[in-house]
Structure formats: structure tokens, C-alpha cells
């Protein structure tokens, strides 16, 4: 049985057994994929699983507007799974109302997204492929290394193109604020492109520093091809090396930038090396 058929069988069973009221996935409409909320098992034959299409935010919005007792199934990939975890941690969706049908990404998809974990925690079918280390990617290296001046020039060239479509924010499964700081004249000057785009992208990137699930949605949707997800790489590496924390992997663990001080840290017994950034000898 192909991966699609296995998912299809599962979705049908879920709907038939009334374990969920609807399943969010992709369906073919005039030969092309669109998101679809399947509520009738007979419609499920139109279900497809490609291409990779972020659905976590849609699922969140469905649950937010649906009646309290509505239960939803979601055909999801690794990034959707992590996004659901992060959204649940931030009270944006009720994990008990959501049944995940996890499928793994292909090696090629993982490479495209520079994804280190291209599979959900539980998969219903298919084979996992190993993820990749973002810094091994040539383009990523180009953007993340070099002297400060080189980096500045490279990013200036990229960010200067921004047309302020808000697409990166709109597709981001984690960006849920209404209103959003990026619409606030205080933080990002209104009515100009790209005048304040630096604030826009740095503030946006930092807001996601401990929540970004590396879905690559921002890069994919950017009409002017800014490699936005590369802004996250170094912060993610820092979180990983300093706190062994990766967003979306552990539903129980609170982000280290929000938690109480951990044992030993900042006390007599262990002092972080970065007490004073000048003394650090950089």
C-alpha cells in the first residue's frame, strides 16, 4: 500500500468511527491540491499528501472557531507536529481535540527546508529519513559565515528587497498574535517599503527564536526570495548547545528563556561564562 493509501485508510476509519468530526488535509481540486476539511468518509478519496503544505495554523483556526466539542484530525508532517506542540504550549489549541496523522518528509523535502527532524514524533505510515544539519548546506553557509561586513552586505541585499507583504508572518504556524507588533508603527514604520524592513525581519526572527519549528514556510512564501529561515539557524544552534532545547520536540518543556533558573546555573557552583560580555574576551 502506498503512503497515500495508508493515510487514506486511516482517515476514513477515523471519520467512520466518529473518533473525529473532520480531518484537515489536502484534496485534489481540478487536478491541483488545495487544503480541505474532510467530514464525510466518502469524500476522502480525493485526499492527497503532496506537496508539503503547512496546515497547523489552519487547524488551530478551525478549532478556535468550531464548537467546543468538535474534534479534528490533521494530516501532518514533522514541522506541523512541532507547530502543534508549540501552539498547544502557548494555549492556542487544545491538543485533546486534535488527532495527528503523521507522515514523514522525503529526503529531498528535508534538504529543501534544511530540516533536521523531517518527521513527526509518531508516523502512521512511511519511512523516516534522516534530517540534515543546516550549516552543511552551501547556501546557508554563504549566509551565515564571513566577516561582519560581508554578512551585512549579503543580508542588506536580501532584506532590502522586502515588499512588506506580511506573507512570512501569515504563513508562519507560530505567529498568532492579533494585533501583531509588526503592524505597530512603534516597531515597524508603517507605509514604507523597505524602509523599516530591518526592524521587521529582526523583530520577527527574534520573536520566533525559541518557537521556530523550522518549517521553512517563510522562505517558501517570500515572493522576493529572501532566505528568511536562515535568520533562525544560529539562534536555534545556541538554544540547542546551551540548553539542549529544540522547539516543538517536547510538549512538557518550557522554553529556556521563560523558565526559572535551573539547578546550579547562576549560583555559587556554576557561573555562566557570559556574565559580562566584555570580559568574555570576544
Amino acid at each position: 500500500m502506498s503512503l497515500r493509501e495508508e493515510v487514506l485508510t486511516r482517515v476514513k476509519a477515523l471519520l467512520k468511527d466518529r473518533r473525529v468530526d473532520g480531518v484537515l488535509g489536502l484534496s485534489l481540486f481540478e487536478k491541483e491540491p488545495v487544503p480541505c476539511l474532510f467530514e464525510d468518509p466518502f469524500d476522502v478519496d480525493a485526499l492527497v499528501i503532496e506537496p508539503k503544505w503547512l496546515l497547523a495554523k489552519l487547524a488551530m483556526n478551525i478549532l478556535k472557531t468550531a464548537p467546543q466539542e468538535y474534534r479534528l484530525g490533521l494530516v501532518c508532517r514533522g514541522c506541523d507536529d512541532r507547530a502543534v506542540t508549540e501552539l498547544a504550549k502557548r494555549n492556542q489549541l487544545d491538543r485533546n481535540r486534535l488527532t495527528l496523522l503523521g507522515i514523514p518528509c522525503t529526503a529531498e523535502q528535508a534538504r529543501k527546508c534544511l530540516c533536521s527532524t523531517p518527521y513527526p514524533r509518531e508516523i502512521v505510515a512511511g519511512e523516516r529519513v534522516e534530517g540534515m544539519y543546516p550549516m552543511n548546506d552551501e547556501q546557508a553557509q554563504l549566509f551565515l559565515t564571513g566577516s561582519m561586513e560581508e554578512r551585512m552586505k549579503r543580508w542588506a541585499r536580501e532584506l532590502n528587497r522586502c515588499i512588506k507583504c506580511y506573507g512570512c508572518r501569515n504563513v508562519c504556524p507560530i505567529c498568532v498574535c492579533i494585533p501583531c507588533k509588526l503592524e505597530d508603527d512603534l516597531w515597524v514604520k508603517r507605509g514604507h517599503i523597505p524602509a523599516d524592513m530591518v526592524s521587521y525581519h529582526l523583530i520577527r526572527a527574534f520573536h520566533l527564536s525559541d518557537t521556530c519549528v523550522s518549517c521553512a514556510g517563510c522562505t517558501d512564501t517570500c515572493p522576493v526570495n529572501i532566505p528568511l529561515m536562515l535568520l533562525q539557524v544560529s539562534m536555534r544552534e545556541t538554544l540547542k548547545s546551551q540548553y539542549a532545547y529544540e522547539p516543538g520536540l517536547d510538549p512538557e518543556r518550557v522554553s529556556p528563556v521563560l523558565t526559572e533558573q535551573e539547578k546550579g546555573e547562576g549560583t555559587l557552583f556554576q557561573e555562566p561564562a557570559w556574565i559580562d560580555s566584555l570580559r568574555g574576551g570576544s
Binding site: E32, P33, V34, P51, W53, I163, C165, G167, N170, V171, D220, T221, C222, P223
Partner: peptide, 13 residues
């Protein structure tokens, strides 16, 4: 945004 559209390919203004 329509990811499979031949012109916009998942981007919009």
C-alpha cells in the same frame, strides 16, 4: 496563497 499556482507559486503581496 496558492502553492501550485504557475505565477505566484505560493507568494502574494
Amino acid at each position: 496563497a496558492d502553492r501550485s499556482h504557475p505565477v505566484s507559486r505560493g507568494g502574494l503581496c
